[in-house]
Amino acid sequence: MADATAWLHPLPGATRLSFCGDEAAQDAAAAALGLPSSAMPCRAVSVGGRASLWLGPEERLLLAPLNERAQLLASLEAGLAGHAHSLVDISQRQLAFELRGPNASLLLNAQCPLDLALEAFPVDMCTRTVYAKSEIVLWRTAADRFHVEVWRSFSDYVLTLLHAVARELSARP
């Protein structure tokens, strides 16, 4: 039944900002980033290489290419003037990789307890969750594609596990 049709790509370094603030601040941040405002829980909005992932009612994970860091910080600082908020650079706190292929969700479901059927976890859905004993951020960027963020010291653990699951799924009686 299961085929090892899934690929794992490490994603290049990125600018990652943890942003917190109320709705007005969220709107201001989105505008500064050139993203549409969205307060929809567990959904990401992205334009070009920039994305804002809803992680909590006051919390967004902002992602952008590595070389846009300075520009991003400057425009956010300008756009957020007067709004109470928190902006913390966490670019190097975590790493990201992409899982793609028809069996990507099967690989994830080996140790992630969420229902990853497309109806239950549609494209653009994002959330913090767990993979075995590690916290991850999971973002479905296409029907058969997931963006996964993991704290750097947990990445060995998660990647080793994913490889073990891939090996086991490709074994046939």
């Binding site: 829980p41 567990c42 307890p113 959330t127 969750t129």
Partner: peptide, 17 residues
């Protein structure tokens, strides 16, 4: 494992709580 309705995220597995 309990299924818990987070008031913000909806029904989620107990492992996340």
């Amino acid at each position: 494992m309990l299924l818990i309705h987070c008031p913000y995220c909806g029904p989620r597995p107990e492992l996340e709580f």
